[in-house]
Design a protein around this nucleic acid. Structure first.
Lengths: 109, 109
DNA sequence: TTAATACGCAACTTTTTGGTTGCTTAACGT
DNA sequence: ACGTTAAGCAACCAAAAAGTTGCGTATTAA
């Protein structure tokens, strides 16, 4: 399909998925698909799809117990997003300093 | 359409758009649409569309001069992404500490 | 053992997205 | 003045995404 970082960015680009992820992070215990569904206005299948996307992005871990699948949030992959953003933080001030820093530190080719 | 933060997340979710944005950040001067197009394998119209998306996300500023439109990157909106990620950084270690911190600091309702 | 629950899978629909081409308009260079 | 260049607009297309419903299956509770 697409590279890992793109999967991650796409996963968090959808507002419903961000909400689901947030709910899982905040939850004091793992939540089943049905439990998640009950908190959202979309069908259970819709939730299942979102969970799958989040899982493929590494943001959710699933633990099957009997007929239930308990979902946990895993925020670690967001480190990648943080790293991506961090590079651009040197350009936040809109001055040329950021670019100068960049040009000075990269290997002269 | 959709809320600002979602526009921003969607803007950076596309790999081509991330590349265009990067090229603009790195560029030592503003680039016209045609100049950008020459660096990518998609048509000029394709680039125009991506630029529009980036502009709507606030990540690109455009300065029209005659028949040319010069594009500058503006990394500032990425602060929002940084803020979003930062909240979850307390959960990176996968321990319960993050959740405890969250529960302790939020207003008890 | 039978009914209810939790879920996956598959098919389908609608909307969005990423991209294209064709045409027009405005600005330059000569 | 005239050809060339820069770009917008609109229509179009294909693929992906977001969501649905229907159905089958495994697990649990009665």
């Amino acid at each position: 399909m697409q590279d890992k970082i793109t999967k991650l960015f796409k996963a968090i680009a959808d507002p419903t998925r961000r909400d689901i992820f947030h709910a899982l992070v905040i939850a004091t215990s793992a939540l089943s698909i049905t439990q998640i569904s009950s908190q959202f206005d979309i069908s259970r299948q819709g939730v299942t799809k979102h969970i799958k996307t989040l899982e493929e992005a590494g943001l959710v871990n699933i633990n099957t117990n009997g007929r239930e699948r308990f979902c946990n949030a895993n925020a670690k992959p967001l480190k990648e997003v943080s790293k991506w953003v961090e590079f651009y933080s040197q350009f936040w001030d809109n001055s040329l300093q950021g670019l100068e820093n960049y040009l000075n530190t990269k290997d002269n080719e």
